[in-house]
Nucleic acid binder design. Structure first.
Lengths: 144, 144
DNA sequence: TCAATCCCTAGTGATTTGCTTGGGATTACT
DNA sequence: AGTAATCCCAAGCAAATCACTAGGGATTGA
């Protein structure tokens, strides 16, 4: 029942971009240093977030990445689902339900999995990226 | 972010034992048939639940398994944690915290993981095994 | 005694994870 | 126009984990 490192690094990348703001495009290299992960791997995670419409990019020299949305308009849940897929604990409790329980009316436990899924979504959709960005900025202030 | 089949089969095994009640010891074979899983695999899952004190066993002829607790005294959360370990989404958010974040004061995201963990635990600890057992019994009634 | 049952450990093929590698396309700057 | 900086993309791969299987030992009731 663990999140993969995609969710962990990817969310940190979004926080990092949130801190930089929207004036410049930040190169991959810099974000990778900030959150201590290899550039090549981070690139793949950022691609997921870009395809989801949460990050925009500019190629070439002076290029880089930037948030495509305002941190107060996006939830941690949106970010994690873009990176990890559904946060449901079983395939039979995914939102799209393309994987249905074979014995769907007799499956007692499916109700449990759906409650877990809803519980997770409630938590992560109640946290805006903005909150984490300002947490980060406050810690920096406190330490210097 | 998926539960393993341990949690899924193990919880079903507990429901099955709950339905049988405490008069007889139910042999592994019968439980395995009920929930459609191999005996050898189920045996390993039941061993986890036995070591956690939730199932008792009798060896030898006429032996088998039986709940060691009343279904109204045990939560789905206790069962899942016995099978899966902590339901925390990262090792740095486990209850025992033997895996600490290396950069523990600067880690912004740890707060998110702990909220997810608590959200999951709240859901699963609010469901008693008894509820699932009676759901099962009601479905059987409805179908025959 | 012996058949039924639980108990335990080791092995194993398939899948997923967490990357690395390497080449191509685009852009700013000179 | 050339070149360095950067993003984009797909393939490959070692290690870990998952979901079992296999098989032998211990215990108990008839």
């Amino acid at each position: 029942m663990k999140l993969s490192t995609k969710g962990q690094y990817g969310l940190k990348a979004m926080i990092s971009l949130g801190v930089y703001g929207k004036e410049d495009y930040i190169p991959l290299k810099q974000i990778a240093e900030d959150i201590d992960v290899s550039e090549n791997y981070l690139e793949q995670l950022i691609a997921l977030l870009r395809r989801a419409g949460y990050i925009k990019s500019r190629r070439g020299s002076q290029g880089g990445y930037q948030l495509a949305v305002d941190p107060k308009d996006i939830t941690v849940g949106q970010i994690l689902r873009a990176l990890e897929g559904s946060l449901a604990p079983t395939s039979c409790s995914c939102e799209d339900s393309s994987f249905e329980c074979t014995n769907h009316d007799k499956c007692i436990t499916q109700g449990v999995w759906i409650k877990i899924r809803n519980g997770i979504n409630d938590v992560v959709d109640s946290i805006m990226l903005e909150e984490l960005v300002s947490d980060y900025e406050n810690i920096d202030k406190g330490e210097n």
